[in-house]
Design a protein around this nucleic acid. Structure first.
Lengths: 223, 223
DNA sequence: TAGATTGTTAATCGATTAACAATC
DNA sequence: TAGATTGTTAATCGATTAACAATC
């Protein structure tokens, strides 16, 4: 598969394509053009074709794209069939919510176990996932290669836990804490899910809209 | 405050600035240059100054930026002091996790109440937030202006609930369901928190890194 | 075949970076 | 004052869009 300088923007659009293709499949649609796909996603057909062309030729002239085939290609590009392993650190509310509701296997991940410090949790299972003591984390990491650590610990310990994960060869951290973990030279990839960043962006857009509406009303008033 | 065609990229960086400035404050740092801020965030000083200049002149030549003053400016830009109202729809795992752990007030939001269909939840409180019946949602929306609806319902009902929210004048939806809600002509803003999109992007980056490492190893082997 | 639609090259647009006069 | 650092203008870079030959 060709993979040359793919921009971040393209990569961030791939999961959206995947989601849309799944939706189309659910609706029994097996063929789509870049034009129609663009309509449904609010993108230009050009952009969609450019995006796909980073990875290969998935369409057919005069026909468009075969939905299941394209879906499979994008899934492969995203690494869904690589069988990545994951562990979850911190079985609090968010940790539990993820273990309960988030289907790791649907996206090709194997959630092998979780870690926590609370004695009443250690040794139990949650939705089939065993919970171990944080004391055993280092030993576990040394014996089992972990691709992604889901970080759902309290923010106070986020940096310390991150160091442990990095030192023990975890490939990547999926960070749910509100802490900026991105270290310039760290060998560990970090993907942030910052709830507050998301809400604050929304807050900005709402503010902007209210201001515009108020300005408009003021202009009408003035006349 | 001047507000002319601010790009999406700039807006998405604002919450990061805010977070960093809070961290600096915590560490007792009250003054910073765009150079130093850039170092810490992995951005160029130019970009930081350009970003700020969209909204005004917050620095001082030869000195830099006053941390608390800049923090206050960015908070205002983001609308933190506007007292936006929020309601949460769907008190499942994620809903509970947000009500329990996410400090809405820290970001200027007032979480007034939540809605659910489960009889055992209705009438109770969760972390001080009352839970009402979904049957009363429309009536509530008509009587109380709601700025942001936090959507944490099962995906099956996401679209139906969204329609209700839109029809009853909710300004924006903070969407935690894995459903693409963005409608081209909807008057309701949508901000998505798509866990799976985030994990899949990470999956791509991990795949890429492993491929590179394997390719490197193969080249060494060959020699 | 004719119509449709791809993949790709070229043109445009926008965002980032560099440079520098202004000034604290 | 001299050094530091801003805000802004100009230059560069990269991403998106448009156009079109290729071809199913």
């Amino acid at each position: 598969m060709k993979r040359l300088k793919v921009s971040n923007n393209v990569i961030r659009r791939l999961p959206r394509y995947l989601r849309k293709l799944d939706e189309l499949t659910d609706n029994g649609i097996s063929r789509i053009s870049s034009f129609e796909l663009g309509q449904q996603l609010g993108l230009t057909p050009s952009q969609i074709r450019q995006d796909f062309s980073c990875f290969g030729e998935f369409g057919q002239q005069g026909y468009g794209y075969n939905v299941p085939a394209l879906r499979a290609q994008i899934a492969t590009i995203l690494g869904i069939d690589r069988g990545f392993s994951a562990v979850l650190i911190g079985v609090g509310n968010i940790g539990k919510a993820l273990m309960d509701n988030f289907c790791f296997s649907e996206w090709g991940f194997r959630l092998d176990c979780a870690f926590d410090i609370k004695p009443e949790l250690i040794g139990t299972q949650f939705n089939g996932v065993p919970i171990y003591s944080m004391d055993d984390l280092v030993k576990y990491l040394q014996e089992h290669p972990v691709d992604v650590a889901v970080l759902t610990v309290p923010k106070e310990v986020a940096v310390a836990v991150t160091n442990t994960l990095t030192e023990n060869g975890v490939e990547a951290i999926w960070n749910f804490t509100n802490v900026e973990l991105t270290e310039p030279n760290s060998p560990t990839l970090v993907e942030n899910v910052h709830f507050s960043d998301s809400l604050l962006s929304l807050s900005y857009f709402v503010s902007e809209r209210k201001d515009e509406r108020a300005a408009k009303a003021a202009r009408v008033e003035k006349q």
